[in-house]
Simulated scan of single mutants.
Amino acid sequence: MCVCVPEIGVGLTGFGLFFLLFGVLLYFDSVLLAFGNVLFLTGLTFIIGLRRSAGFFFQRQKLRGSTFFLGGVALVLFRWPIIGMAVESYGFVLLFRSFFPVACGFILSLVNIPYLNVGIHF
């Protein structure tokens, strides 16, 4: 049985990303970054469920990325925000590197939508 509440999860994840961005913009404020990390991970868990989140983070091929990501979160929580965010970013890239081509393809497909194309016309 999967207890997923995607509506709450999307909101929590959005607020988490907002606080992460705001924390970086305010010169790596450790409280905002820690709050953003907690909200982001909680929102992700609400979106896909606890069992699937644990399954995602602790797959054998993603264990290195998970270690760096969660270690970076721990460093931010222990008030080492710059080093923690660097470690966390490296872990994020390792975790989601298979997703980047899909995201780039989606973003590039938006260029072909009429009225959203802001390219130079001759």
Rank of each mutant, 00 (worst) to 15 (best):
F18Q: 05
R51I: 00
T67I: 12
I107H: 05
F56C: 00
W80S: 08
I107A: 10
G105C: 01
Y90C: 11
V87C: 07
L63E: 05
C2T: 12
M85K: 06
V93H: 07
F46D: 02
P81T: 14
R79S: 05
F92C: 10
C2D: 10
V5M: 03
V3C: 01
S98A: 13
F99S: 15
L32C: 13
L70K: 00
F92D: 06
L108F: 05
G14A: 11
G16P: 07
L108D: 11
L26W: 09
V24M: 14
G65E: 07
G23T: 07
L33Y: 06
F69S: 02
Y90N: 04
I83A: 10
S53M: 13
N117F: 10
I82W: 03
L25S: 10
R97T: 15
L32W: 15
F19M: 03
F22Y: 15
G14I: 01
G43K: 05
L12P: 14
G71V: 04
F57H: 03
V5I: 01
P114I: 09
P6H: 04
A34G: 13
F122S: 12
L63S: 01
G72A: 06
G105K: 02
A34I: 05
R60V: 00
I83C: 01
Y90A: 14
L25K: 05
F57D: 03
G23M: 09
S30Y: 11
G72P: 10
V111M: 13
N112C: 10
F100A: 08
A34T: 15
V111I: 15
I107S: 09
S53K: 07
L39H: 03
Q61A: 02
V111H: 09
G11I: 07
F58M: 07
P6Y: 04
G49F: 04
L25F: 15
V118I: 09
F78K: 14
N112G: 13
I8C: 04
R51M: 00
S66C: 01
P114C: 09
S66V: 01
G71I: 03
C104V: 12
F15H: 02
V111G: 07
V24K: 10
S53I: 03
V38M: 09
S30M: 03
H121E: 12
L17Y: 08
I48N: 09
V111S: 08
K62C: 00
Y90Q: 08
L63H: 00
S89T: 08
I8S: 08
F18L: 14
G105R: 05
L110C: 11
N112A: 15
V111C: 06
L44Q: 07
L33C: 09
